[in-house]
Write a protein that binds this DNA or RNA. Structure first.
Lengths: 87, 87
DNA sequence: TATATATTTAGACAAATGTCTAAATAATAT
DNA sequence: ATATTATTTAGACATTTGTCTAAATATATA
């Protein structure tokens, strides 16, 4: 859980997640959308991967990234505890 | 939104939120539950307050902290975008 | 007024984070 | 085989973060 919140605590990484919600993309396609360097984006992707928020699949020389929504479900469950209490 | 994810990115602060989900507590009561110093807890409470995740109300010499669930709702909405897409 | 209690503020410091450039790895094309 | 393209790894560096102790502020009590 810690690692997931850590991964979400960066605007670039959250934007990557939003992009991947639209369609799967290669590392290069993702990096093109930002002004920061390719290695920095690669590092962000690694953090998202560690948190299992994204899945990476190699196809030839490209690496396709896609969203892993099951972890999003887990986070949602954590937040739901704050809704259950009757006021 | 940035400030909220930042506030959530710490296990102590998340634990404070879970404690406040049970009942309102004073800064001192909260601090007692942890091994870290009072000033550190005070700092954590300040970050939660900045994110509007908690509300602080002074009563005499005590400061009561309570959960602000409306911000939790906003976060949930952000996560919901990842559920809407049909696969 | 002086003292005790509750909490925050200030300043220091080590560890973690986000960024960069340069180099390495891997696959494809000439 | 060599060059090109896609991506990651390594190392450096400035900024941010979480923690601490000491001091300050605010309220209540003797």
């Amino acid at each position: 859980m810690n690692i997931v919140f850590k991964a979400l605590n960066d605007p670039t990484r959250r934007e990557i997640l939003e992009m991947l919600q639209e369609r799967d993309m290669t590392a290069g396609e993702i990096a093109e959308q930002f002004t920061i360097s390719f290695p920095s984006i690669s590092h962000h992707l690694d953090i998202l991967k560690q948190a299992k928020l994204v899945i990476a699949e190699k196809e030839g020389q490209f690496v396709y990234y896609s969203l892993n929504t099951t972890v999003v479900d887990d986070i949602m469950k954590w937040f739901l505890q704050f809704k259950s209490k009757k006021k």
